[in-house]
C-alpha cells in the first residue's frame, strides 16, 4: 500500500515537473554566491572602485564558500521548501479528491508517512545535488576541503530541512488552506530561530543552531558537542512532530464536520 501511495506521489511530482525544477533551483542557490564572490574583486575593479579608495575584500576560505551555499539554503532554500510543501495534503483536501482516496481502505498513518517521505525524497535529492555542485565550485575556486566535511554538512543541515518539512506536513494535516500552511510553517520557523538567538548559549541544542555549529565544525575540523546535541534534539523533534501529524490527521478526519 505504501508503495502504491508513494508511486503516485513520484508520478505527480514528475508530471508537475518538481523533479526537474527543484533540483535545478537548489543547484543555482548553492553555486550562486561562491561564483559571485570569486569574481567580485574583478567586477569592482572594472567599475573603477570609488575614486582611488582601496577596497579590502576578505579572503574566503573553502569553509566560507560552503557556508555561503548553506546560508542561501537557510533563507531562499527554506522558502522554496515551504512553498513546495504547503499543498502536500491540504490542497487535496481543499479540492475534495481526498474524499475519494479516504473512502477506500487506506491507512491514515501510511498516508501521512508517504506524504512526508515523498517530500523528503525530493528535498534531500535536490539538496544533495546542490551541495555536490557547491563542493565542486569550492574546490575549484577556493581550495581543497575534505569530502567528509561535505557529508557532514549534508547530514546535519539536511536535518534542519527535514525538521521544516515535518512542521509543514503537520500543519498540512490541520487545515485545508495551503496559504495558511505556508504562513504557519514560516512563522514557526522564525519563532524558533528568534527564541534560539534570544537565549544564546542556553539553547545551543536548538535545531535552529545546526548551521552555526556546522560553521564551527568546518573551521576547526572537530565535531562540536553542541552539534551532536542539536542533531539528537532535531531527530527527536522530527519523530515527535511526525507522530503528532499522524494523530492530528486521524482526529481531524474522525471529527469531520463539513
Amino acid at each position: 500500500m505504501t508503495t502504491v501511495l508513494f508511486k503516485k506521489e513520484l508520478l505527480e511530482n514528475w508530471r508537475n515537473k518538481k523533479w526537474i525544477w527543484v533540483p535545478l533551483v537548489f543547484i543555482l542557490l548553492a553555486i550562486m554566491d561562491p561564483i559571485t564572490n570569486y569574481y567580485l574583486p574583478e567586477i569592482l575593479d572594472a567599475v573603477g572602485g570609488i575614486d582611488g579608495a582601496v577596497i579590502e575584500l576578505p579572503d574566503f576560505s573553502p569553509a566560507d564558500a560552503i557556508m555561503m551555499s548553506v546560508s542561501q539554503y537557510s533563507t531562499l532554500g527554506v522558502l522554496v521548501t515551504v512553498l513546495l510543501s504547503m499543498g502536500a495534503i491540504s490542497s487535496e483536501r481543499k479540492s475534495g479528491v481526498l474524499d475519494l482516496v479516504l473512502v477506500k481502505p487506506v491507512s491514515y498513518t501510511k498516508f501521512v508517512v508517504t506524504k512526508w517521505l515523498s517530500l523528503l525524497s525530493l528535498i534531500w535529492s535536490s539538496f544533495i545535488i546542490g551541495m555536490l555542485a557547491s563542493w565542486y565550485y569550492t574546490v575549484l575556486l577556493y581550495g581543497e576541503i575534505p569530502f567528509t566535511m561535505l557529508l557532514a554538512v549534508i547530514f546535519y543541515y539536511g536535518l534542519w530541512l527535514t525538521f521544516i518539512c515535518t512542521i509543514s506536513i503537520f500543519y498540512n494535516t490541520l487545515t485545508h488552506s495551503p496559504g495558511l500552511v505556508a504562513f504557519l510553517t514560516i512563522g514557526t520557523t522564525l519563532v524558533i530561530s528568534l527564541l534560539t538567538s534570544l537565549f544564546g548559549t542556553r539553547t545551543a541544542w536548538s535545531p535552529a543552531n545546526l548551521s552555526t555549529h556546522l560553521q564551527e565544525l568546518l573551521i576547526t575540523g572537530d565535531v562540536p558537542s553542541a552539534l551532536i546535541y542539536s542533531a539528537i534534539v532535531s531527530i527527536l523533534l522530527i519523530i515527535l512532530i511526525l507522530f503528532a501529524s499522524i494523530y492530528s490527521f486521524k482526529q481531524v478526519l474522525h471529527n469531520r464536520n463539513e
Partner: peptide, 20 residues
C-alpha cells in the same frame, strides 16, 4: 474488518487528480 472495504462511494460532485 475496515468497513471501508465494504463500501463504494460516488460523491455528488466527484473530484479527481486532474493530472492523471
Amino acid at each position: 474488518i475496515d468497513r471501508r472495504t465494504l463500501i463504494g462511494y460516488l460523491p455528488q460532485h466527484p473530484v479527481f487528480y486532474p493530472w492523471m
